[in-house]
């Protein structure tokens, strides 16, 4: 059986060849990691960038905000990513990790906003909610009249408020690992929660308890963790007209023939309302650049320039076409200057 010998030789040769190329690793391609929410926008810019410049198209991994920052902060060198996308700002503890691993100069670029919408099927009535409604419907424990807490007893939306329909509370939303969930807890749940005076007072005296009350989501089946895939939630909404789903604005925008967004605090989730900062449940999106890499990996400065061009992130830019809500003009100008000079604006 000489061909077994031949296979063995080829295997050895291939693994040797691969190992030698790996050792002489030299990167001429930008590597980006991070949030799955920013992924559609970053990939769009990357593709345009790859086609219109002499640089290669950057490789973008969808790792989630936390996972991306972890990789980003792991160190300086070609094996570490150059840029990380995030659907929340970097935390102080993460900056410390970065510093410990020698990642000193980081430029934060805020690219725009993403609205988080609560939507239901077109075949049902459009809901008009307030943040207080959302909190009362979804919190694990809700305050009683005498300033105590009780397990959430509400079964239907009518129980929460007389103005709402008598439909079972059934909300499909992201799991706790998701950045969308973090933002939803912070903006919608906490926004409704702190309308109770005594809970708001807790924020100063007992921050841990305050957070537990405001961010605790019920686990009795009314809130269904539907996974990270927003398209799946949309499909389930179409099939179940009583359910309400939580996801990013771009999915509402792409499926407006089948689903409708609920108004929150009297404001409908439209492009203009989110851009005008009227819609309360919207969060900023970011990317972070490692300055130490800008001199080594070709194209990083140009990529940042392409992203912060009004053709991309401006009011009529191609990113707004796919659902990114642009920054207000003044903030955009300031951000552009910081980004293009790669100023260290994270840990001064």
């Amino acid at each position: 059986m000489t061909y077994i010998k031949r296979i063995l030789t080829i295997t050895a040769a291939v693994s040797l060849a691969c190992a030698s190329t790996a050792l002489a690793q030299q990167r001429d391609q930008i590597r980006i990691v991070g949030s799955s929410t920013v992924y559609p926008f970053a990939t769009k810019v990357a593709e345009q960038f790859g086609r219109t410049t002499k640089y290669k198209t950057p490789v973008i991994e969808s790792t989630g905000s936390g996972g991306g920052i972890k990789l980003f902060c792991a160190g300086v060198g070609v094996q570490h990513p150059d840029i990380t996308n995030a659907s929340r700002a970097i935390k102080a503890s993460e900056v410390e990790t970065c510093m410990r691993n020698g990642v000193r100069d980081i430029t934060e670029v805020k690219i725009g906003y993403d609205g988080i919408v609560l939507a239901n099927s077109k075949r049902a009535k459009r809901l008009t909610l307030t943040r207080k409604h959302i909190f009362l419907a979804l919190a694990k424990e809700i305050p009683t009249a005498n300033g105590k807490l009780q397990r959430n007893p509400y079964k239907t939306w009518r129980d929460v408020d007389r103005s709402l329909p008598a439909v079972k509370i059934e909300v499909l939303g992201p799991p706790p690992t998701s950045g969308t969930r973090d933002a939803f807890s912070e903006l919608a749940m906490e926004g409704g929660c702190k309308q109770f005076g005594w809970i708001k007072a807790l924020k100063k005296s007992d921050k841990k308890r305050y957070k537990a009350i405001c961010h605790g989501i019920r686990e009795d089946g009314a809130y269904v963790e539907a996974g990270e895939n927003d398209n799946l939630i949309v499909q389930k909404l179409v099939a179940n007209r009583n359910a309400l789903g939580i996801f990013g604005f771009s999915f509402l925008d792409q499926n407006k023939d089948r689903i409708q967004g609920s108004a929150v605090d009297g404001v409908a989730p439209t492009f203009d309302n989110i851009a005008g900062q009227k819609y309360p449940v919207s969060r900023p999106l970011f990317f972070y650049v490692k300055k130490a890499h800008a001199k080594v990996i070709p194209g990083i400065a140009e990529y940042v320039r392409a992203f912060t061009n009004d053709k991309a992130w401006g009011n009529d830019g191609y990113l707004s076409d796919i659902g990114l809500i642009p920054l207000p003009r003044a903030e955009r100008t300031r951000m552009r200057n910081e980004a293009r000079s790669l100023a260290n604006n994270v840990n001064r």
Binding site: V14, C18, T21, Q29, E61, S62
Partner: peptide
């Protein structure tokens, strides 16, 4: 291992992304 990624360029070898 980072293979869940946006890849536009067709890989040309065993070590290309």
């Amino acid at each position: 291992i980072g293979m869940v990624a946006f890849i536009v360029d067709v890989p040309q070898g065993f070590t290309d992304p």
